[in-house]
């Protein structure tokens, strides 16, 4: 087993386990901290894929900005621990979980064990994968082919900012 495989398995185990722990904690603060751990290990996985730019903005935007906002709101509302999860679950919840796990088994069956011929051909990364994820290349594509969506993104963020201020204002209109 090569060293990059070992690094991948460690990061993948941290990502999967912290995700599962995240949805089972009673205290929302613990959930948020586990989600931050998940995002940081995901940034490491992006580095194994040679996507340096995405890894950096994953840490800056997700772990840095969005999760700080979520933690801020949790502490602002001063939420208490919920009751034990098992007592709240009804038969319908168990059926939901069962069908979700069935979908997971189906996806893994299709992807992993049968695999399309297309996927089996992808045993290694494209030769240009290393410079593909560099900031220079990303900026090159972003400001030529995708310059219009990039500008529209600024309008989206402006609208979200105004919407958030209006919604959280003291007197709701």
């Amino acid at each position: 087993m090569s060293s990059e495989m070992i690094v991948f398995f460690i990061l993948a185990a941290v990502a999967a386990i912290s995700g599962i722990l995240m949805i089972t904690r009673a205290n929302p603060v613990n959930s948020a901290l586990l989600l931050i751990l998940n995002f940081i290990s995901l940034a490491g996985i992006y580095l194994t894929l040679n996507a340096q730019f995405v890894a950096i903005i994953q840490i800056l935007v997700y772990a840095g900005a969005i999760m700080v906002l979520v933690l801020f709101v949790i502490m602002l509302l001063n939420l208490q621990d919920e009751g034990p999860l098992r007592e709240e679950l009804s038969k319908r919840h168990y059926a939901n979980v069962f069908f979700a796990l069935a979908v997971l088994a189906l996806i893994i069956e299709v992807l992993g064990w049968q695999g399309g011929e297309t996927l089996n051909a992808m045993q290694q990364m494209a030769p240009n994968a290393v410079q593909n994820g560099m900031v220079q290349n990303i900026g090159d594509v972003l400001f030529t082919s995708y310059v219009f969506p990039f500008e529209v993104t600024s309008i989206l963020l402006l609208a979200a900012m105004i919407g958030a201020v209006v919604l959280a204002k003291k007197r709701f209109p």
Binding site: Y62, L69, V70, A126, A129, I138, S145, T153, L156
Partner: peptide, 27 residues
């Protein structure tokens, strides 16, 4: 898929998904 196909478009989409996620978080 972006790394294995050698096409930077996938990473562009990640950029836009993150922008939408930030807007969604605020609202």
């Amino acid at each position: 898929f972006s790394s294995y196909l050698g096409n930077a478009t996938g990473q562009m989409f990640v950029f836009f998904v993150m922008a939408v996620a930030a807007a969604e978080a605020a609202v």
